[in-house]
């Protein structure tokens, strides 16, 4: 995946059964963002693979004050890349 400066990882082991997964996101390289975030902490949240889109979560992070609106796309893309990898891994382990 492209290095967006925003890192997203699983916050818990993925057993492949739950549609809702815990993810952790943090800024690895603030220079890649248009506006430097105020808080440099790791943000933990749950994401439903079946019902939600990464862009919705990114928008909620903007509305909650974690990121500036101009960075919503880069945050959404970072989450999308990680989610795609998790889904690809699930397909490999348990196709269908």
């Amino acid at each position: 995946a492209e290095d967006t400066g925003v890192r997203v990882e699983l916050a818990e082991e993925d057993n492949g059964r739950k549609s809702s997964i815990a993810l952790r996101l943090w800024v690895e390289d603030p220079k890649k963002l248009k506006v430097k975030p105020k808080d440099n902490g790791a943000i933990e949240f749950t994401f439903d693979l079946e019902k939600e889109t990464p862009e919705d979560v990114a928008q909620e992070m903007v509305e909650s004050g974690f990121f500036h609106e101009s960075d919503v796309k880069i945050v959404g893309k970072s989450i999308r890349d990680r989610v795609a990898l998790i889904q690809w891994r699930r397909e490999r382990i348990c196709p269908g």
């Binding site: 690895e28 902490g41 949240f45 749950t46 979560v57 909620e60 004050g65």
Partner: peptide, 27 residues
């Protein structure tokens, strides 16, 4: 370590905790 919890109006819970130094990319 300080942990902050932010609940978005949509109901999602964001839990913020410090990133360990080892996880930060070298600048």
């Amino acid at each position: 370590s300080v942990v902050t919890q932010v609940v978005h109006s949509a109901g999602r819970r964001f839990i913020v905790s410090p990133v360990p130094e080892s996880r930060l990319k070298e600048q």
